[in-house]
Write a protein that binds this DNA or RNA. Sequence first.
DNA 1: GTATCCATGTAACCAGTTACATGATTGC
DNA 2: GCAATCATGTAACTGGTTACATGGATAC
Lengths: 189, 189
Amino acid sequence: MAKENTTRFALLGLLTFGPASGYELKTLCDRTISHFWNENYGHIYPVLKELAKEELVTADNETKVGRPPKTVYSITDKGMDELRAWLAKPIVHTPPRVELLLKIVFSGNVPRSKVLALLEDEIKNAQETITKFEGLEDHLKNHIDDKNHGHKNAKLWLASVDYGKRFNRMHLGWCEDQLRSLRKSENRK
Amino acid sequence: MAKENTTRFALLGLLTFGPASGYELKTLCDRTISHFWNENYGHIYPVLKELAKEELVTADNETKVGRPPKTVYSITDKGMDELRAWLAKPIVHTPPRVELLLKIVFSGNVPRSKVLALLEDEIKNAQETITKFEGLEDHLKNHIDDKNHGHKNAKLWLASVDYGKRFNRMHLGWCEDQLRSLRKSENRK
DNA sequence: GTATCCATGTAACCAGTTACATGATTGC
DNA sequence: GCAATCATGTAACTGGTTACATGGATAC
């Protein structure tokens, strides 16, 4: 069984917030779920066409004065059914691929200083990501009642940011412990 | 810039433990790093040929009586250089794709019961994985001095299992909290 | 004789990324 | 006149998965 095209469901999901063009879906994706999901034009446009062909979405051409024309997609009942079926299905876990662990497991082949540098880089990254996520969190909490930003799903969105924070804290903690243990064995030599 | 072929380095890394055939590399991979890395034959064999062509590994045909013939690959100096260069390079983080969060963020479209079931399934999975990892850990700790199992890298290997445990505990904790918060809001209704 | 392991490979396929190309409109 | 934003798309490519095909050797 081939791997499922998750992009289809990401787009269907975004369309539940309202009709949008390919371009708008991309910016929506970037602004709302980019901390855990990413799409690019080269995939969005073909998949939208595919979805339209299968009647999971409808495509309407819109021309407004003073604006480039665009194709606006809306999710259909059939599309909603597909989306709901996917949402209810348990997640099929594919074997993970953690590049950091690959580098660590083979790190006996490089000088310790390189390994320390790698871990320090990871730590810096994780700290920056956590800070970014905390900013995101604050921003959302302050605008949670702001009707203009209209996210009924603010709670779920916050939960996704929380996941990101937890993940990065876990990652950070492991790297720090690893770094400590590495430095300790260095001193013993 | 195209995405890097990490399989190359996984294979080069495994070959630092000693020469091996494609088949042996697959079983080695399954037995030692499958908790965070996976490879399949359909990728291993072509990549090995590619590596041989680039002289990062050498290929030797071996025929033993009472055994099917096999091609044994060994890492070359050039291969070691490539591997070391990769090991020392910081990790380029590609945008993550967390399917669970996608489902949660769009979960407003399905009955709460389905979301609860999804979370419960994730929790069960995470618990099972943690148990599996603890078994792995115990096994390794008991054989750490056993020369026959010959893993000089037992410490690094343990660290990778520890990462897996931490990740799954984090995942588990988030799911449990999410479940609790979902049930609470259910009662309020 | 049959199931399992050892052993190698290819073909078809799919998901996803990057680079490239185009052009209208708006604000400075 | 130019940069930025809005808007759509394709072509080339790569990494990776799955299914299929083959066949020798071994242990029961």
